[in-house]
């Protein structure tokens, strides 16, 4: 499948995320004649249920389940602490529910527009909790349709990203898109791009969003 980079919006210190940024990024894609469509993905945090909260435990604090629009019948579980990403059928979510060992705590929705720009597909979306419009972040996917090798596509992805960032910078927005590429080989993933790579990227993006949200009070203080 085509290689994809997932970015998150990193705010400048002292600023907060708002829907105006998303609107400006979308306008930017439209100005370079992007063909528009809608896009949506879901991400759920699972946390363990303990019988005895006080007992010491080596159980992971959480793991992430994500469903992606390109694989609507699949679910991807990512356990970052153990560098594991599992692909399973959607029914695995029902199995987890039956087991009652981990509970889905928070579901986040990634939702926005996708644009075809030649051989590239760009998706820009807001990150909001399900049943809420409380904006938690902004993500962007850049997909290069002709190539599925991460290494072979690296140069063209970097070139596209540079042009894109340059176009965005003209709008003087309070931040920029960051692409923090995970070490895929640690997760047992090869150079040939799969949806498991996407799941790992989203898990990484979430870790970055949480880290930056937690660092905001420190900046203010």
């Amino acid at each position: 499948m085509p290689v994809k980079w997932v970015f998150h919006w990193q705010l400048n210190p002292g600023t907060t995320v708002n829907s105006q940024i998303l609107a400006e990024v979308s306008q930017c894609a439209e100005t370079i004649n992007g063909v528009k469509g809608r896009w949506k993905a879901n991400l759920t945090y699972y946390k363990p249920i303990f019988r005895d909260q006080t007992a010491p435990s080596e159980i992971p604090r959480d793991f992430i389940g994500i469903s992606l629009p390109e694989q609507p019948n699949k679910c991807y579980f990512t356990l970052r602490s153990h560098r594991i990403v599992v692909e399973a059928d959607l029914s695995i979510q029902n199995i987890m529910e039956k087991l009652q060992s981990y509970k889905s705590r928070v579901t986040l929705v990634f939702e926005g527009f996708q644009y075809h720009l030649g051989d590239f597909q760009v998706r820009v979306g807001k990150v909001v909790p399900s049943h809420s419009e409380n904006l938690r972040g902004i993500v962007m996917e850049v997909e290069y349709l002709p190539i599925s090798s991460l290494e072979k596509s690296r140069e063209i992805m970097e070139d596209f990203t540079e042009i894109w960032q340059e176009t965005l910078s003209k709008r003087s927005l309070p931040g920029r898109f960051i692409h923090a590429e995970p070490n895929f080989s640690e997760f047992g993933l090869s150079d040939n791009y799969t949806s498991q790579h996407t799941a790992v990227q989203y898990a990484t993006v979430m870790a970055q969003l949480i880290a930056s949200a937690q660092s905001v009070p420190a900046v203010r203080n």
Binding site: P48, R51, D52, I59, I95, K98, Q100, S101
Partner: peptide
């Protein structure tokens, strides 16, 4: 200590 009740699969 894992789970509201013991579980198996």
């Amino acid at each position: 200590n894992l789970g509201a009740v013991p579980s198996d699969l």
